[in-house]
Computed example of a mutant assay.
Amino acid sequence: MIELDDFDRELLRALARDASQSAGALGRRFGLSQPATWRRIRRLEQAGVIRGRRLRLNAEALGFGVTVFLGVKLARKGRVSLEDFERAVSAIPEVQTVEHVLGLYDYRLRVVARDLADFERVLRRRIMALPGAGDLEANVLLSEERRPGPIG
Rank of each mutant, 00 (worst) to 15 (best):
R43M: 12
A88V: 08
T97V: 14
I92L: 01
V101H: 00
R108W: 15
Q96I: 15
E144L: 13
A14W: 08
R147A: 08
G78E: 09
I41E: 05
R39W: 09
G24F: 14
E60Q: 08
T37E: 04
G65F: 13
G31R: 07
E83V: 15
V80T: 11
R43W: 13
G63D: 08
G65H: 14
L12E: 04
E94Q: 15
E137G: 06
Q46R: 13
L123T: 03
G78S: 01
L62D: 03
G63M: 08
L141P: 02
V101N: 00
L55Y: 11
A133D: 03
R53T: 10
Q21E: 12
R13G: 04
R79V: 15
R125E: 15
V66G: 01
N58Y: 10
F69H: 03
S90P: 08
V112D: 02
I92K: 00
I127T: 04
A19S: 14
Q46G: 05
G65C: 07
G149C: 08
F85A: 07
I2N: 01
G149F: 09
S20I: 11
P35G: 01
L4T: 06
P35C: 05
E45R: 07
R53K: 13
S81L: 11
V49G: 03
A59P: 02
R114W: 10
V66H: 00
F30L: 08
L26Y: 07
P131R: 06
F85I: 11
R53Q: 02
G27L: 10
P148Y: 12
L62P: 08
R108A: 12
R51M: 07
L104C: 00
G134M: 01
L109Q: 05
F69Y: 14
L141A: 13
E99R: 09
V122S: 03
A113D: 03
D135E: 14
R42Y: 15
P131H: 04
L142V: 15
R147I: 14
G134I: 10
V112G: 00
I127K: 00
R56S: 05
R124C: 05
A88I: 10
E99Y: 14
R76N: 06
G24Q: 12
A91K: 06
W38E: 06
L62I: 09
K77V: 12
R124F: 08
L44V: 05
L123D: 05
V89H: 00
R28Y: 09
H100R: 07
A61C: 01
M1P: 08
I127Y: 05
R147L: 12
R54S: 13
S90C: 06
P150E: 06
S22Y: 11
R124P: 01
Q46V: 10
R9V: 14
D115M: 10
G78W: 04
G63E: 13
R51H: 02
R146E: 09
I2L: 12
F7K: 03
R125P: 06
A47D: 09
G48D: 07
L109R: 02
R56L: 12
